[in-house]
Amino acid sequence: MKRITAKIKGGKIHLDFNGFLGDTCLTEENKIRVILVKMGVKTDVEYSDNKREGETNGIAERERN
């Protein structure tokens, strides 16, 4: 199952991709961004980080620290 959570606050869109195989989450991110721009939402990537496979259960190591 693929899950995307988005938190929108203060002019920022925080996207969290889970359950994607290989680099398909990058493809999905590109699809979302290209349609956002077509809808008049200009986006710049402020932060991007691939989670390691062991973190994909939703408990990211950085969140535990």
Partner: peptide, 10 residues
């Protein structure tokens, strides 16, 4: 692989 992305949006 999973990913976190933060977009600044206007």
């Amino acid at each position: 692989m999973s990913k976190i992305v933060i977009l600044s949006a206007q």
